[in-house]
Amino acid sequence: MLQFSALLLALAGVGLAGYAWLAEGTGVTGTPGALLALIGAVAALAGLAILARTPLTDRHRRLVLALSVLAALLTAVAGWFLMQDALAIVMALLGLSILVIAARPLRRTAVR
Protein backbone atom coordinates (compact mmCIF):
# COMPACT_ATOMS: atom_id res chain seq x y z
CA MET A 1 0.00 0.00 0.00
CA LEU A 2 2.79 2.39 0.96
CA GLN A 3 4.65 1.54 -2.20
CA PHE A 4 1.51 2.24 -4.23
CA SER A 5 1.08 5.61 -2.48
CA ALA A 6 4.69 6.41 -3.22
CA LEU A 7 4.13 5.60 -6.88
CA LEU A 8 1.16 7.95 -6.95
CA LEU A 9 3.25 10.69 -5.33
CA ALA A 10 6.01 10.13 -7.88
CA LEU A 11 3.49 10.33 -10.72
CA ALA A 12 2.13 13.56 -9.26
CA GLY A 13 5.69 14.86 -9.00
CA VAL A 14 6.35 14.11 -12.66
CA GLY A 15 3.11 15.84 -13.59
CA LEU A 16 3.86 18.93 -11.52
CA ALA A 17 7.45 19.17 -12.75
CA GLY A 18 6.31 18.71 -16.33
CA TYR A 19 3.71 21.42 -15.86
CA ALA A 20 6.30 23.80 -14.37
CA TRP A 21 8.61 23.23 -17.30
CA LEU A 22 6.07 23.28 -20.11
CA ALA A 23 3.15 25.49 -19.11
CA GLU A 24 3.13 29.26 -19.68
CA GLY A 25 3.20 31.52 -16.67
CA THR A 26 4.83 29.26 -14.09
CA GLY A 27 7.79 31.61 -13.81
CA VAL A 28 10.17 28.81 -14.75
CA THR A 29 8.78 27.77 -18.14
CA GLY A 30 11.47 26.23 -20.32
CA THR A 31 14.25 26.85 -17.84
CA PRO A 32 17.11 24.41 -17.19
CA GLY A 33 16.12 24.33 -13.51
CA ALA A 34 12.60 23.15 -14.28
CA LEU A 35 13.96 20.55 -16.68
CA LEU A 36 16.31 19.32 -13.96
CA ALA A 37 13.36 19.00 -11.59
CA LEU A 38 11.46 17.02 -14.21
CA ILE A 39 14.42 14.69 -14.69
CA GLY A 40 14.67 14.25 -10.91
CA ALA A 41 10.97 13.41 -10.60
CA VAL A 42 11.18 10.94 -13.47
CA ALA A 43 14.23 9.35 -11.88
CA ALA A 44 12.40 8.90 -8.57
CA LEU A 45 9.41 7.40 -10.41
CA ALA A 46 11.70 5.06 -12.34
CA GLY A 47 13.33 3.93 -9.10
CA LEU A 48 9.98 3.09 -7.56
CA ALA A 49 8.87 1.30 -10.71
CA ILE A 50 12.00 -0.82 -10.62
CA LEU A 51 11.39 -1.65 -6.97
CA ALA A 52 7.82 -2.65 -7.70
CA ARG A 53 8.37 -4.65 -10.85
CA THR A 54 11.89 -6.09 -10.74
CA PRO A 55 13.24 -8.74 -8.38
CA LEU A 56 16.42 -7.30 -6.82
CA THR A 57 19.13 -8.46 -4.50
CA ASP A 58 19.33 -6.71 -1.12
CA ARG A 59 22.28 -4.71 -2.27
CA HIS A 60 20.62 -3.57 -5.46
CA ARG A 61 17.40 -2.82 -3.62
CA ARG A 62 19.24 -0.62 -1.16
CA LEU A 63 21.03 1.14 -4.01
CA VAL A 64 17.80 1.85 -5.90
CA LEU A 65 16.12 3.03 -2.70
CA ALA A 66 19.03 5.35 -1.93
CA LEU A 67 19.04 6.79 -5.44
CA SER A 68 15.27 7.24 -5.39
CA VAL A 69 15.37 9.06 -2.06
CA LEU A 70 18.18 11.24 -3.33
CA ALA A 71 16.28 12.05 -6.53
CA ALA A 72 13.09 12.82 -4.60
CA LEU A 73 14.73 15.03 -1.99
CA LEU A 74 16.91 16.90 -4.47
CA THR A 75 13.84 17.50 -6.62
CA ALA A 76 12.02 18.77 -3.53
CA VAL A 77 14.86 21.23 -2.92
CA ALA A 78 14.83 22.22 -6.59
CA GLY A 79 11.07 22.69 -6.41
CA TRP A 80 11.50 24.99 -3.44
CA PHE A 81 14.09 27.13 -5.24
CA LEU A 82 11.87 27.14 -8.34
CA MET A 83 9.02 28.44 -6.16
CA GLN A 84 6.91 25.43 -7.16
CA ASP A 85 5.51 24.77 -3.71
CA ALA A 86 3.28 21.86 -4.66
CA LEU A 87 6.18 20.09 -6.37
CA ALA A 88 8.43 20.66 -3.37
CA ILE A 89 5.84 19.27 -0.94
CA VAL A 90 4.98 16.23 -3.09
CA MET A 91 8.62 15.32 -3.64
CA ALA A 92 9.47 15.78 0.05
CA LEU A 93 6.58 13.45 0.96
CA LEU A 94 7.81 11.02 -1.66
CA GLY A 95 11.30 11.10 -0.19
CA LEU A 96 9.90 10.38 3.28
CA SER A 97 7.75 7.56 1.90
CA ILE A 98 10.73 5.92 0.25
CA LEU A 99 12.67 6.22 3.52
CA VAL A 100 9.84 4.43 5.32
CA ILE A 101 9.78 1.75 2.62
CA ALA A 102 13.51 1.34 3.06
CA ALA A 103 13.16 0.99 6.83
CA ARG A 104 10.61 -1.81 6.58
CA PRO A 105 11.84 -5.42 6.84
CA LEU A 106 12.04 -7.31 3.57
CA ARG A 107 9.87 -10.26 2.73
CA ARG A 108 12.54 -12.65 1.60
CA THR A 109 10.59 -14.75 -0.87
CA ALA A 110 11.03 -13.07 -4.19
CA VAL A 111 14.75 -13.43 -4.71
CA ARG A 112 16.64 -16.74 -4.52
Binding site: G27, T31, P32, G33, A34, A78, F81, L82, M83
Partner: peptide, 13 residues
Protein backbone atom coordinates in the same frame (compact mmCIF):
# COMPACT_ATOMS: atom_id res chain seq x y z
CA UNK B 1 14.78 50.41 2.85
CA UNK B 2 13.84 46.80 2.08
CA UNK B 3 15.21 44.16 -0.29
CA UNK B 4 13.10 44.18 -3.43
CA UNK B 5 12.42 41.52 -6.04
CA UNK B 6 14.01 38.15 -6.62
CA UNK B 7 17.03 37.11 -8.61
CA UNK B 8 16.63 34.16 -10.93
CA UNK B 9 19.09 32.01 -12.79
CA UNK B 10 18.37 28.84 -14.77
CA UNK B 11 14.89 29.13 -13.27
CA UNK B 12 16.08 28.96 -9.65
CA UNK B 13 15.16 31.92 -7.47
Amino acid sequence: EVPFGLTQRWGFY
